[in-house]
Each structure stands twice: as structure tokens, then as C-alpha cells.
Amino acid sequence: MKRQVPLILCFAFGIVMILTQFSPHSFSQGIYEEVISWTLIISPFALVLATATLIQTHVARIQRRTDHWQYSFVVFAGLITMVVIGVPFGPQHQAFEWLYTNIQVPMDATMFSLLAFFIASAAFRAFRARTFEASLLLITALIVMMGNVPVGDLIWNTVLGWLPLEDGASKARQWILDNPNLSARRGIILGVSLGIISQSIRIILGIERSYLGGGD
């Protein structure tokens, strides 16, 4: 009951999803769509549980008065405001959209733009051309970066204007992305995909059971 039933459920759902994708029959497609809707119903519960765990963590921080515990109230304020407005009135409500546009979107963009500074300092340390491979990485990154901005072509046309190739920076970038970069990515994708398929077969057949956790 504790381990066998989950293994059977996993096997059944896995096999059903494989078989229904190979059959265009309306009955099979009906099952396929029903199972997809089931997972879309089950998934939000996992998110709510994750939120409950987040709340537990911050309540414990407040109770124990750990470092910066006061900021846990800010987490609650943001969470409660979004849920109180969004759940009953929906994401199209004016107040919810205001919060999304003026708080979430700017903070999201700023958080990621902050990485521009750290990535620059990381690049300074990583891009020291000590080996052939590091030099290759450095040169490729420089060409891709210069080819991404108009000033790259301006420099190319000014310095290398005597070459019979106009806007060479952006063209070199595109060639790198379409050829050696794509072949490396294809190699990685093929390897990862074979890994995903073998792992999925192991899960469906019950060979891989780590998702069940420990205990009985």
C-alpha cells in the first residue's frame, strides 16, 4: 500500500501517456487530454504545499528571532496581498495587474540585470587565455558580444573596411551560432535526451524509485 500502489500508479500513468501519443483515435486522445487536465489540477496543490512550507520556514524565523527575522513580515505582506486580490478577483483584476506591472516586473528585470555586473567580474577572472580551450571560449564570447551590438559592425567596417565583407561582426556571430555552436548544442541535446529516455524507462518500470523517498 505504501510503496507498491505508488509504483503501480507511476507505471500506469507512464504507459498510458506513451500509448495515447502513438494512437490518433478519438478515445485515446480523450484519455490523453483527461490525464493532462488531471496533472494540471494536481500541480497547484504542490505549489500550495510549497507555499505552506515557505510560511512554516518564515514563522520559525520570526519565533526564533534569527538574523533579519523582521523581513519575514515583508514576505507575508507580499504573498497575502497577491493572494487576497488575485484568488477571488482573478489575475485580470486592475489591482492585481498594477502590482504585477509596478512591483513584480521591475524587480524581476532589475534582479536579472544585477547579474550583468557580477557576470562581468566573473568573466574577468574566467577569461584569462591560459589554455587553448579558454582562448577559444574567450574569442567566441567576444565575437558573439560584438556581433550583438551595432557598434561591433561599426568597428569592423572602420578597422577592417578593406576586407570584402561588410558588417562582418554580426555575420561572424551568426555563422558561429548557426554552425560550430549548433553542432555542439546538438551533441549535448542528443546526449541529454538519451539520458532522459533511459531514466524515464527506469522510472516507469520501477527500477528507479528514489522519488518515493526513504521509510516503508
Partner: peptide, 28 residues
């Protein structure tokens, strides 16, 4: 374990044909 097993089984089942089609056959 019940909901996790269902979601994992669903994910594994949907991955096999799709990964085969999109990532192996199409890339090759």
C-alpha cells in the same frame, strides 16, 4: 507518494515520445 508517483509517471510517459521525436529524430 501517490500524487508524486502520478506526476512522475505522467512526466516520464510524456517525455519518451516527445524527446524521441523533437530531440533525437529532428536533431539527427
Amino acid at each position: 507518494r501517490y500524487p508524486i508517483a502520478i506526476l512522475i509517471g505522467f512526466g516520464a510517459g510524456i517525455a519518451i515520445p516527445n524527446v524521441l521525436r523533437a530531440n533525437i529524430f529532428e536533431q539527427t
